[in-house]
Design a protein around this nucleic acid. Structure first.
Lengths: 220, 220
DNA sequence: AATTAAATTAAGGTTAACCATAAAAAAAGG
DNA sequence: CCTTTTTTTATGGTTAACCTTAATTTAATT
């Protein structure tokens, strides 16, 4: 698999995760994701299909085969390991690491992956709080359903578990001095204006639904 | 500059260093170095020439321009920083790091280079004993002429300063348990058979001229 | 200086990853 | 079920990095 193929496999996996479902991913999704033309996406998907990395039903979309899924998970693992390295060892901040890790992941050998993981002390999550998949992906327990702030209930207490790896949102959270593990309570939900009011550290902050969908939380 | 261009620039720099002269590097050299055809080398060199990274005299060869040389030095710096990381932090052995560093160097940003260098404690040499060029290449003192074991004198004492980054030779030195800093004396030179006999740690080892040319030493 | 050998360049081909335009096929909606 | 919209595919184009074969130019040798 080369860079382009890897990018496509990972994109399908990521779009899937975002939707929190295993629906087929349409070519349209990929067009938007990469800003590639229909033609380009179609060619790429047919190539991946020939290689048995995706199963493609024309006019419907693609799903990852077991091979494809394993590759995607392994890329995600490597990506998150590198992100951890950049933050913990090189002092990057969490919104800076995505692009660097994106390039590193494609040139990482099995040996580097293993050594780096051990060097980092076998971390469980990346700097954004996302789980680093284990080496034995296939034995992995199915992903636990994740709750975003959108599903939160008024007056309850929550803990921030993870954040979507999006530069804008990460930078915004820096501003608010919010980190993984932050405790807060939902003081008010305003569905008309699509806002959620949180209180934490003796102050109140207001978050729009768009951002709320990117924050994964657990009641506590 | 993309991967291919960077590889060519670095190759010219390396061939130059090996020859310990600033002679022009012929296309033939590059053909052998990359196992590319004359045509391919010619096209690449003309491209680099158009970009003012090399100065090319047809039927003679190429020299690096100041821009080209700076790029090559910066790539060498990054390469050696990564080699140091792999050996010191990830426990690689010195003959395993070349190819990994080769891929890492092309995706390393200025920021990563800086952070990694500091993280490693601003090392002066790579695991093979070669100097890591400073960030300010242009202010760099001209390379000190290096002496190989070929130039050694019988009965004198030497210290191993650095080794050419060649897998076969590095593995061979592992066998002999020879490391950078090793002290030894030249017990006998046999120019007929092109051999040099060394004594170290109460034992005698015999080295051919081919290997001797790859070992840089200083009298002590 | 003429011949031979070596090195370069020209011409044209391949593959991979992208693109645009337009035709065709399928899905969706009234 | 027929029309509109969406999605796919066919056709053909571009650029980059490689290739081969053959012609040309320069360098080396006698």
């Amino acid at each position: 698999m080369n860079r382009g193929e890897e990018d496509y496999i990972k994109a399908i996996y990521e779009i899937e995760s975002r939707q929190q479902s295993h629906d087929v991913i349409s070519n349209l999704h990929l067009m938007q994701y990469f800003s590639h033309t229909a033609q380009t996406v179609n060619e790429m998907i047919k190539k991946l299909s020939k290689k048995k990395l995706v199963e493609y039903i024309p006019y419907k979309g693609s799903t990852l085969t077991e091979d494809g899924r394993n590759s995607a998970i392994r890329l995600t693992r490597v990506h998150r390991i590198w992100e951890t390295f950049l933050v913990e060892k090189l002092g990057y901040s969490w919104e800076e690491v995505h692009d660097e890790a994106e390039r590193l992941e494609h040139i990482t050998t099995k040996k580097m992956e293993e050594r780096l993981f051990i060097f980092l002390g076998e971390p469980e999550t990346c700097p954004h709080g996302n789980k680093i998949p284990s080496v034995e992906y296939h034995k992995e327990i199915k992903e636990i359903k994740k709750n975003t702030l959108i599903d939160a209930i008024e007056k309850k207490e929550y803990r921030l578990e993870s954040v979507v790896d999006d530069k804008e949102i990460l930078t915004y959270l820096n501003h608010l001095d919010v980190k993984i593990g932050q405790l807060f309570s939902v003081s008010r939900i305003d569905p008309v204006n699509e806002l959620i009011e949180l209180s934490m550290n003796n102050q109140t902050i207001v978050i729009g639904y768009k951002v709320a969908k990117c924050l994964f939380v657990n009641a506590c």
